[in-house]
Design a protein around this nucleic acid. Structure first.
Lengths: 237, 237
DNA sequence: TCTACTGGCGAACGCCGTTCGTGTCAACTA
DNA sequence: TAGTTGACACGAACGGCGTTCGCCAGTAGA
């Protein structure tokens, strides 16, 4: 090792090489670093100690900027939602707009590891950018001519679907998503279902092909179509 | 204190009053105790130490019967699903049967604190009684005349809805559900939405009444109806 | 009766979120 | 310019967690 080249006393040129002792910490910096950890390794890898370490400090320092971990995760989620792009509702195309927005919403969550898990804690939007998303969805559904009550319950239902789909997807793909492991994944499920006893699960075993047809976009789009069609079916027109 | 009444040496009549030193532990006993903790105080209160304490032993002893906490939680979930009562599909009444079964499913989850959170980890049923539930639902949807593909995707969608609804409900009611705090809860939400800036959230603030109409059964039933109607809309007939 | 084995379990390891008390720098006051 | 003040940084520690190790004791088979 070359550590012998360094004198034991502090040299002038390496006094405080980084760590300018002050002003380096901020809520934004913490959120950014935390989001990086979640993106790369998932929510489970996120710890106050880990964040502090990545910022060259101790865990206690974080609490000057964030009241606790729960709040930090909420900030992460809102930070992620900040990237959503909101459509201007057009009554002629509201359905396409809605589906595109919901897809974007899910992709945005999936892009941040299993952050969707945090979004499931409370279905009611409370942070600014989560409220923006709800506002946009409500506006789209109303542009589609849905009554207030159906639109209100509908937004809830769609949000529930988007978030839980994203979470399910994230548990499937893992923290660092390999691009094409989905085929192997599907084969695994297929094998499992096929191995079940046909006398106890006659229907399941007879439908393995349909059950394991797709685990990605087609499935998600199917759910979107079903819910939107169901909402329209609740209206007289 | 009356501890002086007890001699410092072991008296014959209190030698091993309980704790027969052996055979008291079993996987079933562990699951039962753990489920009791989750019912009363929620998943967060569940720890190996806590279970062990309730069984008058140390945490290490549990690992002879359960490989880790993750597996234990899976066992809890399957134990809960064991109580589900399955209908025999009748093509004339499949819709009512399906709705009743799904309601029962949700109630069963909500009855066990926030155990639903564990059910969300993987949407694919793998344990015996979870597979039973999927089998029943598939049979019902096929009795309703749905095609294999729509039934397969539909079961997934309904399971996602039931489980995430149950989880949402459980975070609302808390571990020990007060029977009638729902009104105060709704009032809280109403107040929050009403306090939002109307210029940023014009649609949201104009729909507070519809958004906070109900947070319980009516909302859940609405979602059920929407999804089932949407599934039927996917079929030609 | 001896032996082999299985389950029970005390102790410890390395994590975790959070708090306390102290230090130290930056900027305002006089 | 000198003194003061208040906010931020952070080392150390507390009480929890899941899990493993290794020893011990009781049971069952030879």
């Amino acid at each position: 090792m070359t550590s012998a080249a360094r004198p034991p006393w502090p040299s002038p040129w390496d006094a405080e090489p980084r760590t300018p002792k002050r002003r380096t910490l901020s809520r934004e910096a913490i959120v950014e670093v935390a989001l990086g950890i979640v993106d790369a390794e998932g929510l489970e890898a996120l710890s106050m100690r880990r964040i502090a370490q990545e910022l060259n400090t101790g865990p206690a320092s974080l609490y000057a900027h964030v009241s606790n971990k729960e709040q930090l995760v909420e900030l992460l989620l809102d930070r992620a939602y900040r990237d959503l792009r909101h459509p201007f509702p057009d009554p002629e195309q509201w359905r396409t707009q809605a589906k595109e927005f919901l897809r974007q919403w899910r992709d945005n969550l999936v892009a941040h590891g299993d952050l969707a898990r945090a979004a499931m804690q409370s279905n009611i939007p409370t942070t600014p950018h989560a409220l923006d998303a709800a506002e946009s969805m409500l506006a789209l559904l109303r542009a589609g001519g849905l009554s207030d009550q159906v639109a209100a319950y509908g937004v809830d239902l769609l949000a529930l679907y988007v978030v839980s789909s994203a979470y399910e997807q994230s548990t499937r793909t893992g923290p660092n998503a390999e691009p094409d492991q989905s085929q192997a994944y599907l084969d695994g499920i297929r094998g499992f279902f096929a191995s079940l006893p046909g006398d106890r699960y006659p229907v399941l075993t007879s439908m393995v092909a349909a059950l394991t047809r797709d685990s990605g976009d087609e499935r998600f789009d199917f759910g979107l179509d079903v819910i939107i069609a169901g909402l329209l079916a609740r209206e007289p027109g």
